[in-house]
Design a protein around this nucleic acid. Structure first.
Length: 493
RNA sequence: GCCCCCAUCGUCUAGUGGACCAGGACGCAGCCCUUUCAAGGCUAAAACCGGAGUUCGAAUCUCCGUGGGGGCACCA
């Protein structure tokens, strides 16, 4: 990898929710920029007015920031190559379209959409490749200029060479050779005066001095076109890298932001905006998407800093990758265990708040070590930790009757436990556990039976963090009250 | 239909002609630990798409199949 600072960009269109694929391109862009001491840029490709959806741009910016992928230049923070919103760069594209027309690489086209559509239909009927038939390509330049001056509506089309081949170099896949006759005279500038992607992206990448273009492999089809446009301008090409696409978990078909079947399904989502709500961390999400399309030999749990140290274009993989939510869970849980107690406590607090539980900081700090390794997602803290903050718990009576015992026997166990614990000045686990174990010995019951009753009584649930440590945090008064309550329930059964 | 890309365990991947009876991770199964659930430790099962060729030697290079994916707009 060159040590020259790279300028990279993520250039999403604000047409829907930001999803995994956009995040991954941004991640790789970010890693490459940071690794080389360069800049990472956000550019909004909003030239399709019909598809632009309100709020989408904000969602992209929020998503990138949530992931920790701070961009160095962008629509809301500016930069020396702005503006960073394509609808605000209209004149730049028009000027460049003119350059191409003037040097014979492009031409105005006056064909009406309905005629084009008819031509397309006929071509398909004849089993030909649908393509522009070249009517206006042959137009006399003077006549064309006259019609433009008359106010006739037109587009600008790229004059694709009809002979020969285009060899385009992708830094992941090598040279890609395409016969020019396979390509079309694509529209560069639309009748509304805005550019299509083909013109806008090429012009902006040049103007913004982008050195590496990372994008999805859905662009491979028009890649030779883009290379031809760059050459028509006489510019130097950036390094192109076409990333693999994400496939649905089944491996059947590409993951699409228009496919809503995977949105918020079974606690999973492909949209970045949902991740926080579902309890996923930026660390977990980044680690997950990083390794779909990027191979590291070992030590695959990485922070962003570690990714920056290791990232190279050469270690990217070209094949499509099926997303696997179980792996997201794994990375998320692993990173949660890596957080400091203070950090994790702060991250957990909003999830308690969301449930209407005001989690006291000092208590939170004490329970984090008890629940940390049980959390897969941050919101799991509710199931493992809500009982710490409640005034009382409501155990299911059946759960209080431990396996192998009846209600009467269970009540007796609970009463003895109460006596033992009530005799202690405080309920530190060092103080409580030995006498309780001694009772287990003398009673002839198993530790599981005795502690099981106590667990349900104190926490209100069958599954919980370690019992004695939990009791210590809950405190003497509350614990004894809860056990007393359990005894009453058992006695009524 | 045409064009392009891709091809190692179920999934994500390591592997760049000999160090590979193919390594790691997730998941799955078993065992250990254990007051529940986890976490942790150990063990197991699990792959080079097929066929030709090049070579002393191929997961690795070439070709042909096959399979998968993407694209063929005044959308990006």
């Amino acid at each position: 990898m060159s040590i020259k600072p790279a300028r990279t960009r993520v250039a999403p269109s604000p047409t829907g929710h930001m999803h995994l694929a956009t995040a991954r391109v941004a991640l790789y862009d970010y890693l490459l920029a940071k690794r080389t001491g360069g800049q990472f840029i956000l550019r909004i490709e909003d030239t399709d007015l019909k598809r632009t959806v309100p709020g989408a741009e904000q969602e992209i910016m929020d998503g990138l920031r949530w992931l920790g992928l701070e961009y160095d230049e962008g629509p809301d923070i500016g930069g020396k190559f702005g503006p960073y919103r394509q609808t605000e760069r209209r004149e730049i594209y028009q000027r460049h379209a003119r350059i191409l027309v003037d040097n014979g690489s492009a031409y105005p086209c006056f064909c009406a959409p309905d005629r084009l559509e008819k031509v397309r239909q006929e071509q398909m009927k004849r089993k030909e490749n649908p393509r522009y038939d070249g009517t206006c390509r042959a137009l006399d330049p003077d006549e064309a200029a006259k019609r433009m001056a008359n106010g006739e509506s037109y587009t600008i089309r790229f004059k694709m060479p009809r002979e020969g081949v285009t060899v385009a170099r992708d830094h992941l896949r090598g040279d890609i050779t395409t016969e020019n006759k396979q390509l079309n005279d694509y529209v560069l500038l639309k009748t509304d005066g805005l550019p299509t992607y083909h013109l806008a992206a090429i012009v902006d990448d040049h103007e913004m001095q982008i050195t590496h273009v990372l994008r999805g492999s859905e662009w491979l089809g028009t890649f030779p076109l883009h290379v031809n446009i760059v050459r028509a301008f006489g510019w130097e090409e950036p390094a192109w890298v076409h990333l693999s696409v994400f496939l649905k978990p089944s491996g059947k078909g590409k993951l699409s932001k228009r496919d809503t079947s995977l949105a918020m399904k079974d606690g999973y989502s492909v949209f970045i905006k949902d991740m926080n709500e579902l309890g996923y961390t930026p660390e977990g999400v980044n680690n997950w998407i990083a390794l779909m399309g990027w191979g590291v030999a070992e030590d695959d749990v990485m922070t962003i800093e570690q990714m920056i140290e290791r990232f190279t274009i050469d270690s990217l993989t070209p094949s499509p990758a099926a997303i696997n939510f179980q792996k997201l869970d794994h990375f998320n849980a692993t990173h949660i265990r890596l957080f400091t107690t203070e950090d994790l406590a702060a991250r957990l607090k909003p999830y308690f708040t969301r449930e209407g539980i005001s989690a006291d900081d000092s208590v939170l700090l004490k329970i984090v070590p008890l629940i940390r390794e049980r959390l897969v997602t941050l919101d799991d803290c509710i199931q493992f930790g809500a009982f710490f903050f409640k005034d009382e718990v409501a155990p299911n009576p059946e759960d209080l009757v431990t396996k192998g015992l009846d209600a009467k026997q269970s009540a007796e166990v609970a009463r003895r436990a109460y006596q033992i614990l009530a005799a202690q000045p405080d309920l530190s686990h060092e103080r409580c556990e030995p006498p309780m174990r001694a009772y287990v010995e003398e009673s002839g019951y198993s530790a599981g039976q005795v502690f099981g009753i106590l667990r349900v009584a104190v926490t209100g649930q069958k599954v919980s963090p370690p019992l004695f440590e939990s009791m210590e945090v809950i405190g003497r008064e509350k614990c004894l009250q809860r056990i007393k309550n359990a005894i009453e329930i058992l006695e009524k059964m």
